[in-house]
Design a protein around this nucleic acid. Structure first.
Lengths: 230, 230
DNA sequence: TCCCTTATACTAACATGTTAGTTGACGACT
DNA sequence: AGTCGTCAACTAACATGTTAGTATAAGGGA
């Protein structure tokens, strides 16, 4: 018995279309709906027990975000990766991360320093325990904290929206036992620069850190060619 | 006789909802629909001669972009400015512009240098002629060219989408006879750094240039308080 | 006079019926 | 046998009917 791959709308909040949107988005980002999957409105309606209106609105938003490609009058598909898009997403992410760390470096409070230090300590513990899922989440949290410390409430969401394709592609990467330790060193370099209020060092440390992702994604184009555009 | 403030959908391309979206977006960005304007779906349907479905989809997208605020079951309004949002938009724009100019500085071709030089020359001519509207467009074009020269096709649109609130707020600013000359100097400083392939100089020139906007927007909160959130 | 209640009108949100464009398969003609 | 034209089935797109939540204004009580 195959469980429905969509979260039930009952578990979410907001308007019906909002919940359908969240449900579909989650399924796409988690690769439960891998690139190329055809999405039929009728099927979604049946699975979620809603009518076509909220589904149409949800798909319109997903289309605007680039997560699905609509072929008029014909079909809707989960969008495939293209290396160009991924490079672009990485560029945008780097731009934001650098701007954020520059600002935080100048304005950081002792409490923020403490929180970042605690986060990195947690990363170390999780790697020692070989809890790589926990490490992944704590790594994400490190970057989210930096976004929040800019003082701009919407910045974390903007980062998430420009990083959509990166988030999906990351799900394909094989776990690499040696990478987390490198990651932690890079995070420490960033934190040190923030502590020293050294903007130039912070920028370059972040540039170096965010530059690590693309080389690890490149091989995916061959190992998972079915998910990429020709 | 008041002409309809919306562009007719006949003049646009794409699906009906796409055209409705473009029409509404244009009206909002150009301040034909100023902040606080209530948008009734029924009225839009009548004015554009379409049914409620495409209007609903268009408003869903505008809502996701933050151009309209939907009050559930009650009303939809053109979103008001908040100085926080504007500061945030400025931060994001600066992040992108800096990242772009850094990349272009490293990779620029002779053709790109020539195109940028030509653009600035045009700016000078337009200011001499006191054609400030033309200058505004050429100024915009200068920045769009930089985005295009990154080689990432989607970057110009991302810039536009993070700059939505800035674009609207700019419509309120009074023309300032002295500002264009300063702007040109800043553009020239950026171009010189690009020419010299001096990444640090390019970054700081762009940082300085993009930092000029917020001080000019700040007074609007008092002079146009009706457009701002309390 | 002021506040609370209540009824009514209005709106967005949702459901469903209808249209039109696309795709793929089948059959006829070359 | 291969190719082109036609037709049937399916899908998104659009139109319209229905529901439910919100705001406003009128009326009654303190």
């Amino acid at each position: 018995m195959t469980a429905s791959s969509l979260n039930k709308v009952e578990n979410l909040s907001g308007s019906l279309s909002q919940r359908v949107y969240q449900s579909l988005r989650e399924a796409i980002l988690s690769m439960q709906y891998p690139p190329g999957t055809v999405i039929r409105k009728g099927a979604i309606c049946d699975q979620l027990g809603v009518s076509r209106s909220p589904v149409a609105e949800a798909l319109a938003r997903l289309s605007a975000e680039g997560l699905v490609d609509v072929i008029p009058q014909s079909a809707t598909k989960v969008s495939c990766f293209s290396m160009d898009e991924i490079r672009e997403a990485s560029f945008l992410r780097q731009a934001l991360e650098i701007a954020a760390v520059e600002k935080v470096t100048q304005e950081r409070t002792p409490e923020q320093l403490a929180a970042l230090t605690r986060n990195i300590r947690m990363q170390e513990l999780l790697v020692e325990d070989k809890d790589f899922v926990g490490f992944y989440e704590t790594d994400e949290e490190f970057h989210t904290m930096l976004m929040n410390f800019t003082g701009f409430n919407g910045v974390p969401q903007v980062l998430a929206s420009v990083s959509l394709h990166l988030t999906r592609a990351r799900m394909l990467m094989l776990p690499d036992e040696s990478r987390p330790k490198e990651t932690i060193k890079e995070h420490q370099a960033i934190l040190t620069a923030i502590k020293n209020q050294d903007v130039d060092a912070a920028r370059e440390a972040m540039r170096s850190h965010t530059g690590q992702l693309i080389p690890r994604i490149l091989p995916l184009e061959e190992s998972h060619a079915e998910y990429f555009k020709p």
